[in-house]
Design a protein around this nucleic acid. Structure first.
Lengths: 191, 191
DNA sequence: TATAATATTGAATATTAGTTCATTGAATAG
DNA sequence: CTATTCAATGAACTAATATTCAATATTATA
């Protein structure tokens, strides 16, 4: 790759970063392409030299960036409650270290919870559905006696809603003190 | 009040209801005034006979409707953990009964977490700040030994993020099974 | 019924913001 | 050194959408 392509790649990442920051703070619809260009320090027109549209920019954030940061691995060979402990701890670690992950949570939630975002983009997030596999794991943990009784779907909702909303809070207000993962795990843990 | 004023009031409420539903599903910015009018079954122009602007419509949702639904009472004369139990249970009750409350949670969060919403509107929500009084209560509960140790601010964040994100989930997907309030209380409860 | 007030419409207007493009300047390859 | 390609600009274009308004229909009241 020539020096020019490196430059181009770097510039693209700057745009992606600025876009992500504005999207999560103002929402996709309220973020002006002019805003993004200004934050990167380029003219509006130039932005279209790098991304063919505002929507494509969002799409790349979703496809590339989310796949890089949002890998929650579901495996069969681990005790269910232990899995949720590990997952929560790993996510909270990233929140404390202020990696991209927390910002990605905000973006994901914005997309998933907004009917206005094009179906094509939502579809890209299907791979990251945490509910379905969580429900099965919760049932397993209930049988094993480590996870409390109750509707497994509702338990999954409680757990993941808590996790993702805390992630959003930290992403948007980095000074907020980060809760401990063990507190959240107690939503699931059987006494 | 004459029959015409009653009609007018009723019409306004229809618009408010349609606006609320669309705002929480598509977000304020992506909701077109035409959409709202169409949902109510009136022409676009007529909507401006009832509300002088899209922003004023939002403002009224915030001022009038939220004050009617979002009353969390903080009092000194109750055991802290008990207060959180009561509050959570009351909120979850309303979620199960699908009152307006859950929708208001979504709207409040959208406003509070979105830099693009005008300061004038955000200011209207200051009265509903739950964090500040919660932190004090949590400290009290920690002294009394009913609430677990840890940063009180972080505990308040964990509790309220969980509550409000679950409320959002239920509001947007009414078929989602509602978690139990006792699960969420275990975020705070000392073992 | 007549008159005034209000409700309603839909087309016209204004504004905002996404996108295009002709042009200029800089870098690179031959 | 020169030609070609790419980076960059900002003004022009366009589409979308909030808002206005003149005209019309409906309703209330005297």
């Amino acid at each position: 790759m020539g020096i020019r392509n490196q430059q181009k790649e770097k510039r693209r990442e700057e745009i992606l970063a600025a876009g992500l920051n504005l999207f999560i703070r103002k929402g996709y619809a309220s973020t002006k392409i002019t805003d993004i260009a200004q934050h990167v320090g380029m003219s509006t027109g130039l932005l279209f030299h790098y991304f063919e549209s505002k929507e494509k920019l969002l799409e790349e954030l979703v496809t590339t960036s989310i796949s890089n940061t949002m890998n929650v691995f579901f495996t069969d060979d681990i005790e269910p409650l232990q899995f949720f402990e590990n997952t929560a701890e790993r996510i909270f670690d990233e929140l404390r270290n202020k990696t991209l992950t927390s910002k990605m949570f905000v973006l994901m939630n914005q997309i998933l919870y907004n009917e206005a975002t094009p179906q094509s983009i939502k579809a890209k997030l299907e791979d990251f559905d945490a509910f379905t596999p969580s429900i099965k794991l919760i049932q397993k943990g209930q049988s094993a006696g480590t996870i409390r009784e109750g509707n497994p779907h509702a338990l999954a909702v409680a757990f993941w809603c808590a996790i993702s909303s805390i992630a959003s809070e930290i992403a948007l207000y980095p000074d907020t003190p980060c809760p401990e993962s063990v507190w959240i795990i107690d939503i699931l843990r059987k006494r």
